[in-house]
């Protein structure tokens, strides 16, 4: 039986950077998400695990403001996200959230450096600042030597590091990752996990990671289990 989040040692909503209360989502007549309630504190590493089709990715998309819930409340830094217009949401996704996708899409005709610059473009960051921030992010994830290369020349592990660097470029408060190690071997998975934990530690960034990799879940501060659209604490 699922326990209350607060009762399960979740941060107090006053401390949480992100709070979701009774989120629900359906596609047609199919219920994907029901009464999902959770909160994440700054610098916390939260793993959401569960079988395929359980609604993990949908929850992550709602938390990452790329999809709206049918019902429930979602607040970020105390701001009610349901009231925000699309442009404000885009701004939020750009400045406060960082997204790491399983297939880490990159523009193949741009260099890695240019790809890392993409989230800086809506902010009209001047070129010199861009270079500084790109180099800092690349050094943080360990791909500084690959900045001039095209994405196609990078290995899977390097690409995932680049994806994390891109997500971090605007110094987000929350990093959301969808199966970040899904396509990586064990050694690379370990490297990425080390990197994520270092980011959490050094930048005090909250991590919400959707995974069904036990190796990842094992290193999270807190693990939520998702099954048939409902969250339970493991």
């Amino acid at each position: 039986m699922a326990k209350s989040m607060l009762a399960m040692g979740a941060p107090n909503s006053l401390d949480a950077i992100l709070s979701a209360n009774k989120l629900a989502k359906s596609y047609g007549s199919t219920r994907i998400l029901s009464d999902a309630t959770l909160s994440v504190a700054p610098g916390e590493f939260l793993a959401i695990v569960g079988p395929s089709g359980s609604g993990k990715s949908t929850l992550l998309h709602i938390l990452g403001c790329v999809e709206r819930p049918d019902a429930g409340d979602l607040t970020l830094n105390g701001q009610d996200l349901r009231r925000l217009r699309p442009a404000a949401l885009a701004n939020l996704r750009n400045r406060t959230l960082g997204f790491v996708f399983q297939f880490f899409y990159f523009e193949p005709h741009l260099t890695v450096a240019k790809n890392l610059e993409v989230p800086l473009m809506p902010l009209r960051v001047p070129p010199r600042d861009r270079q500084t921030r790109v180099r800092a992010a690349a050094e943080l994830v360990g791909i500084a030597d690959q900045l001039r290369q095209k994405p196609a020349t990078l290995s899977g592990g390097q690409l995932q590091r680049a994806a994390i660097a891109r997500a971090l470029i605007n110094r987000p408060k929350i990093l959301l990752a969808d199966e970040p190690t899904g396509n990586l071997d064990r050694a690379n998975t370990e490297h990425i996990l080390d990197l994520l934990l270092r980011i959490k530690r050094e930048q005090h960034t909250a991590l919400i990671v959707v995974t069904h990799d036990e190796q990842v879940a094992a290193r999270a501060d807190r693990v939520l289990h998702m099954s048939d659209g409902r969250l339970t604490v493991c």
């Binding site: 990452g64 790329v66 699309p86 442009a87 885009a90 701004n91 996704r93 750009n94 400045r95 960082g98 997204f99 996708f101 899409y105 523009e107 993409v118 989230p119 473009m121 809506p122 891109r166 997500a167 605007n170």
Partner: peptide, 16 residues
């Protein structure tokens, strides 16, 4: 479509 969706997910507006 996917590229546009990812760009928007990382903060591009429709106008961008």
């Amino acid at each position: 479509r996917k590229e546009i969706a990812i760009f928007r997910a990382i903060g591009f507006r429709r106008s961008h």
